[in-house]
Design a protein around this nucleic acid. Structure first.
Lengths: 194, 194
DNA sequence: CTAGTTTCTTAACATACATCAATTTTTTCC
DNA sequence: GGAAAAAATTGATGTATGTTAAGAAACTAG
């Protein structure tokens, strides 16, 4: 039945794993295919899973009382996504995860991962390092929001994430940068002119 | 000589450690006492250490070309501090760490920690969970900067970190919130009046 | 291919916060 | 305890980005 190559070595690149370990890890992952527009996680739901993106594009966003949306994270090929604040504390989602482009993803529960860490410590190291990278990115984003104009933040965004820019709407980018779609439009015009 | 109780169980609260492990860990930590005003890390220096705060108050800040300062992190009792982006990648500091109140701290190198992780996996779990918490805080801060007014961010700040507010200058808080000291002053007046 | 819907753009006006320039208050330290 | 330095406050004015409202452009689905 299972003639296709395992996706596990692809996810855990550079992590040395025995065949037995690959099978064991594979057992706790579940494949999902998502259509554009689908909601993967709703506000108020218990967040038990995080998701590895094999293809497609998703975003996590927060909705204010006023109805305004704020994109916290985009994810494309080889990224992970969840409402991490809720995931880490096994609590209820305050954010929504939406599929922006048809996607193939793998889900895994926090509980299963924590159990695997005990048996395969290099998995914990793998995720710790991912987390260190994400921490640095967030810090950079905070610094940007403190020190850069909207135009500079947009320019950095498209330079840093050209693949994301391609697959999302401008108003998604605006809600990630913390500006209105109208302001982004003006910024784009300004950039196009000069 | 060493009649005082080890500080290690205090740092790694809730981590089960044998006496031998405590001694081993203790061997890679070094105690420092800092006077208010001292700079612990300068821009351009290789970042090999992170620091655990036993008492006192420090901050990490970034200086723009224009000279404007942006506080990225405060740290008080039982917090850790570093220029983490540089620390995680063993590269050069882009930020400065400054002592704001006389402090007693413990420093440990990334290399020593990574080696300890291999022998004492529960230390890696401890730091991974710290990192998860820090990740959530950063996410919350990004959401705040996207969705809240300066006044709301200030109110949240003093509610969340009353102990920090006590030990730092208003202009430090302003530079953390991403506003000028003049704006913070107006916000404080407004709050005092109502 | 066309009608309807979604997304993007533009313009006029509003507002939160920044800037500049004093002045007052608080802290430091001899 | 008083002079000097540092920090906080205040007012007048400027600016980046938001808001509202409309229309143009780009998709989507029958």
């Amino acid at each position: 039945m299972n003639s296709q190559k395992s996706f596990i070595p692809e996810i855990f690149k550079n992590v040395p794993l025995t065949k037995k370990e690959v099978v064991q890890i594979q057992g706790v992952f579940e494949k999902l295919t998502l259509k554009k527009g689908v909601t993967l996680l709703n506000v108020g739901e218990l967040v038990e899973y995080q998701y590895y993106i094999q293809s497609g594009c998703l975003r996590t966003y927060f909705v204010e009382d006023s109805g305004k949306e704020h994109t916290v994270q985009f994810a494309i090929r080889d990224w992970w996504i969840s409402d991490y604040t809720a995931f880490f504390s096994s609590s209820k989602a305050i954010m929504t995860i939406e599929c922006l482009q048809d996607a193939t993803i793998y889900k895994v529960s926090r509980e299963d991962m924590e159990n695997l860490y005990l048996e395969i410590p290099q998995l914990e190291t793998f995720f710790r390092k991912k987390l260190e990278g994400a921490f640095s990115s967030f810090q950079k984003r905070i610094l940007g929001s403190l020190s850069q104009t909207a135009k500079d933040r947009y320019t950095s965004f498209i330079a840093t994430y050209p693949n994301i820019e391609m697959s999302v709407k401008n108003y998604h980018i605006a809600s990630y940068l913390g500006i209105t779609t109208e302001s982004l439009s003006r910024i784009r015009r300004e950039i196009a002119q000069n």
